[in-house]
């Protein structure tokens, strides 16, 4: 899966033909409010998708239905050929392979960085503690933060915390990673260190769905960019076409707003 490369841009491996996420005519309401409208989306293994759109457009809600942090009322969501419905066994099976990185990191403040990372491998994967520690240190080194292993999350900067959160997800050795605005809560000078880690992941062939406004990231690694507005997928295209030649007026307006400054 890994493709050796020396260049920094565009050198992402092409996705395979295998579908890992299939969303079919999915609808979701909060009371009377129709949050997601007839969503159709198919994601192939190794594909990197960036989802953008104005706030309240349902983009976070959409990726949160993919690991059942949110329910839906009609349609179907299938992940790794497992139907996500009310079945708890199915939900836990999907969650073992799909990890999420949150806007506010959501690290466990009462545990050290290392304990944060080894918790799920030990309790969900039933991994021996020593092996889990080795795995955790391996991923902490990957996100270049190994020296902080025995600190508590509250002692780290925002960028460091988000990298720990990414490493925590990687420790579950997921097949799919969901990023819910991973850089939105960070100070500007810390955005790059987190994006660098995400770009590396993309280049290793991780299947990623990322809600973000970092258009540079989208241009560099995305296979497809999705624009959402008012609960609908308005536009979906490869990054070149999406940025150079958007079809819908709403997309054009949105792009002009976020790219103008």
């Amino acid at each position: 899966m890994t493709v050796a490369t020396e260049t920094t841009t565009g050198a992402v491996p092409p996705p395979s033909e295998e579908d890992v996420i299939v969303v079919n005519k999915m609808n979701k309401w909060y009371g009377n409010f129709h949050v997601l409208k007839d969503i159709d989306l198919t994601v192939r293994k190794g594909e990197r998708i960036v989802i953008c759109g104005p706030s309240g457009s349902g983009k976070s809600t959409l990726i949160r239905t993919l690991n059942r942090l949110e329910t839906y009322q009609s349609g179907e969501v299938t992940v790794n050929d497992i139907l996500l419905g009310d079945d708890v066994k199915n939900i836990e099976a999907v969650r073992r392979d799909v990890c999420m990185v949150f806007q506010h990191f959501n690290l466990f403040p009462h545990m050290t960085v290392l304990e944060n990372l080894t918790l799920a491998p030990i309790w969900v994967r039933k991994m021996p503690k020593k092996e889990a520690n080795d795995l955790a240190m391996h991923y902490l080194e990957r996100v270049r933060i190994a020296e902080q292993a025995h600190k508590f999350p509250g002692q780290l900067s925002g960028g460091q915390q988000q990298r720990v959160a990414i490493a925590r997800s990687l420790c579950m050795q997921p097949k799919i990673m969901l990023f819910d605005e991973p850089t939105s809560a960070l100070d500007p000078e810390m955005v790059k260190e987190v994006l660098d880690v995400m770009v590396e992941l993309a280049k290793e062939g991780m299947t990623m769905l990322c809600v973000t406004h970092e258009m540079g990231f989208a241009k560099e690694v995305a296979d497809r960019v999705i624009f959402m507005d008012a609960g609908q997928i308005v536009e979906m295209a490869g990054p070149k076409e999406f940025f150079d030649n958007p079809k819908s007026d709403r997309t054009k307006l949105f792009l002009s707003q976020i790219l103008s400054h």
């Binding site: 942090l69 836990e92 799909v98 959501n106 918790l119 799920a120």
Partner: peptide
């Protein structure tokens, strides 16, 4: 949510 997303029961 973090606990859920890590597949903890």
């Amino acid at each position: 949510e973090a606990g859920d997303s890590l597949a903890l029961s």
